[in-house]
Amino acid sequence: MPFTLATWNINSVRLREDLVLRFLREEGPDVLCLQECKSPVDKIPREQFAALGYGHMVARGQKGYNGVAILSKLPIEEVGAADHAGLGHARHIAGRLGNGVTIHNFYVPAGGDVPDRAVNDKFGQKLDYLRDMRDAFHADRPAKSILVGDLNIAPREDDVWDHKKLLKVVSHTPVEVAALAETQDAGAWVDVTRQDIPDGNLYSWWSYRAADWDAADKGRRLDHVWATPDISGAGHSSRVARHVRGWDKPSDHAPVLATFDL
């Protein structure tokens, strides 16, 4: 039975509750994975989501920072929450649907402003987090799984508005791109978005600093949908809901969607 999945860094689920509700009403994905919820789990407005048919949720939260949640129309069972790099942050939750598909929802550290771990601890934490993700997938090879989230890295040249200008900017540096590639390879993950949209510039994040983000279009593809090879061929209809970035008081990320015939 086909199901549609969306991933969205919401940048505060309580502040942008109305936007989440609007997205659920208008787009109606079967599963919505949120990052940067910035809320304890018991403060997430789950009753309002349930009223729209999203009666199932697995989540990890903390006050004011990080936080990940999976809202689902379909029954989902929590099956893990890793603390990679030992940061004590709510950055991962995994749930399993009734069809046996495991969904991993990640919020990888942003990494600060300086791409040098010697002077920027946050950049070191980001690299350590990716290392631990890689090692976890090596140790326990995933199967029948989907990985989504704000991975905070735009890996391809056409995932950023200007490859050369961003080579020394955190999120597109060669060391980050290499670390993400190692993580992807460790689980043999297939980039479903680029499987469906192989060519051309594609972004999911635009800075708040741009006076007119849409016209400037200085974006990056930081939000990803991956799948293991045993089910990646079932993925299709990938898209970025770019228009959502233009809603009132939006997140700086737009949702990314894909449908799986499983």
Results as ranks from 00 to 15, higher is better:
Val148Gln: 08
His172Leu: 01
Val148Leu: 13
Leu127Gly: 05
Val101Leu: 08
Ala110Asp: 01
Gly100Gln: 11
Val160Ala: 05
Arg96Thr: 10
Leu74Phe: 04
Val192Thr: 14
Ala82Val: 06
Val177Ser: 04
Asn105Phe: 03
Pro109Ile: 00
Ala188Lys: 14
Leu167Arg: 14
His138Leu: 15
Arg96Tyr: 02
Asn99Met: 09
Asp158Thr: 07
Lys73Leu: 11
Val114Lys: 07
Lys122Val: 02
Asn120Phe: 11
Gln125Asp: 13
Asp113Glu: 14
Glu77His: 13
Ala90Asp: 05
Leu74Arg: 15
Leu180Gly: 02
His172Arg: 06
Leu180Ile: 09
Gly67Trp: 06
Ile76Lys: 09
Met133Pro: 01
Thr102Ile: 15
Gly112Glu: 02
Val101Ile: 15
Val119Asp: 08
Pro115Arg: 00
Ala82His: 09
Lys63Asn: 10
Ala85Gln: 07
Gly149Ile: 06
Glu78Lys: 12
Ala179Phe: 03
Leu71Thr: 04
Gly64Asn: 11
Ser72Tyr: 02
Val160Gly: 03
Pro174Cys: 06
Asp150His: 11
Ala82Cys: 10
Pro174Leu: 04
Asp121Phe: 11
Arg91Met: 10
Thr183Met: 15
Ala179Asp: 03
Val192Ala: 10
Arg117Ile: 04
Phe137Ser: 05
Ala94Phe: 09
Val170Leu: 02
Trp189Cys: 07
Ala186Met: 13
Ala82Gln: 13
Leu87Cys: 06
Val177Ala: 06
Glu78Gln: 14
Lys144Leu: 11
Ala188Leu: 13
Val68Met: 08
Ala118Phe: 02
Gly149Arg: 03
Val169Trp: 06
Val170Arg: 03
Ile103Pro: 02
Glu77Ser: 12
Glu182Asn: 12
Val108Ala: 04
Val192Ile: 15
Ser72Val: 03
Gly111Asn: 06
Pro75Ser: 12
Ala110Cys: 13
Gly124Val: 00
Asn105Met: 09
Val175Leu: 03
Leu147Tyr: 10
Ala85Cys: 12
Ala136Glu: 13
